Computed example of a mutant assay.
Amino acid sequence: MQVSRTINSQLEDQLFKGKVLILYGARRTGKTTLVKNLLTKFSEKSAYINCELQEYKDALSTTNSGLLAEFIGNRELIIFDEAQHIANIGLVLKVLVDTFPQVQFIATGSSSFELSGMVSEPLTGRSRQFLLLPFSLEEIGQTLNPIQIKANLPNFLRFGLYPQVFNSIGDEKIEELAEISSNYLYKDLFQFEQIKKPDLLFKLLAAIALQTGSESSLNELAQITGTNVHTVKRYLELLEKSFVIFRLNSFSRNLRKELAKSQKIYFYDVGIRNAVIRNFNEMNLRTDVGGLWENFCITERIKFNQNHRRFVNIYFWRTYDQKEIDYIEEKDGHLTCFEFKYAEGSKGKFPSEFSENYPDSSFKVITPANFFELYK
């Protein structure tokens, strides 16, 4: 089933404006498919470069503008796919965009810890960055109507929305998730960061998966995995930078009883989360539905913000006496608060302590009955 990516129009709007376009995202989210679709509009004067191939690693191992000019030829658009495999890619891209401003360069990368570290300083002021995540329900709405999407919500919560998984049928979904979660997602971690304890990585992921929706303590994770806090912190950072997980920090400004240093950890795709703990049970057989729905909704909101270039700060909120808000966005001084309830008809309550202390705020309860409000 063909699904057009919302971010595609954002990329096209930035073409030929003198900037290198950097497209990040985990492996298997559709980056290559997206950029190859762009090539169809410039087929005669464009090139797709697979940077994992040695021939291109050798050709791009220089910043000599003369040699690079021979490589570019008369092309107008060049895509460097998985650009983190090119040594000094940031410097190479800097020379290219400065020397050939008429040419549009696009670089994709599945590991921001490698690619952004290479490009952030050399390309200061010369790039635009985008993040491609798995399908969103907003995008799936191109091919399924709202009634169909609502009917399939339980399956989306079980298997997530990776493109290959969405387009698979029955047990093939589990096969795809097993392959992605055991091989592809961590390929760059093992290659670039030389992770010496892959078993520890998977133990940590399982511990995070079992705490979905709850606050996560570095000390507790270290105890569960049998390692130290420093190692846990490093592994969490690497998992974030490879787009497996993300963290929410607690919102705290005015009240003494607000938790100030807590964090919650979520997966960018709940299918990967379920694959980590090998739990694809239907909703009526699960004890983790609340956390699963919370993770799913927060991720959908993040996709909405990324796809529409909405730049916001994101948090959760909790007090020592257990008053809480699942998710908060801060934009232009306004706070938008969300509570996520899987049971239809559930009515959350906006904590009075929060509304009184932060009067410029709003509150929404998201259930399966009104989940499309996430995309407003």
Rank of each mutant, 00 (worst) to 15 (best):
Q2E: 14
I7C: 01
N8C: 05
S9F: 04
Q14F: 12
L15S: 06
G18S: 04
L23K: 04
Y24L: 14
A26L: 02
A26N: 05
R28W: 05
T29R: 00
G30C: 00
K31F: 00
T33D: 06
L34W: 04
L38V: 09
L38M: 08
L38I: 13
S46E: 10
A47E: 15
A47P: 03
I49C: 13
C51W: 05
E52A: 15
Y56M: 10
Y56I: 12
S61H: 11
S61A: 15
L67G: 07
I78Y: 05
D81E: 13
A87G: 07
V92D: 13
V95I: 15
V95D: 08
D98E: 13
Q104C: 06
Q104T: 04
F105Q: 03
I106E: 05
G109N: 04
G109M: 03
S111W: 07
F113E: 13
S116T: 15
G117L: 09
G117S: 14
M118P: 00
G125L: 07
R126K: 11
R128M: 10
P134G: 07
S136C: 01
L137T: 05
E139N: 01
Q142H: 10
Q142I: 05
P146C: 08
K150G: 00
A151V: 00
N152I: 00
N152Y: 03
L153S: 02
P154D: 09
F156K: 01
G160H: 00
L161Q: 03
Q164M: 09
Q164Y: 03
F166I: 01
E172Y: 11
I174S: 09
E179N: 14
I180L: 09
S181E: 06
L189P: 02
Q194H: 14
I195K: 11
K197H: 14
D199A: 11
L205V: 07
I208M: 05
T212S: 11
S214D: 11
S216K: 07
E220F: 13
A222L: 07
V229A: 15
V232Y: 02
L239S: 06
L239F: 10
E240A: 13
F243N: 02
S250R: 10
S250G: 12
N254K: 15
N254V: 10
E258S: 12
K261A: 07
I265A: 00
F267Y: 02
D269I: 00
G271H: 02
V276I: 15
R278N: 13
R286H: 03
T287V: 11
D288H: 02
V289T: 15
G290M: 12
G290F: 07
G291S: 13
W293L: 03
E294T: 09
N295M: 08
F296M: 12
I298G: 04
E300R: 05
E300I: 11
I302Q: 09
I302N: 10
V312P: 02
V312Y: 03
W317L: 06
T319D: 06
I325L: 11
Y327M: 07
I328M: 07
H334E: 13
F338E: 01
K347I: 09
S355F: 02
E356N: 15
V365A: 01
A369L: 08
A369S: 15
N370F: 08
F371N: 09
K376A: 14
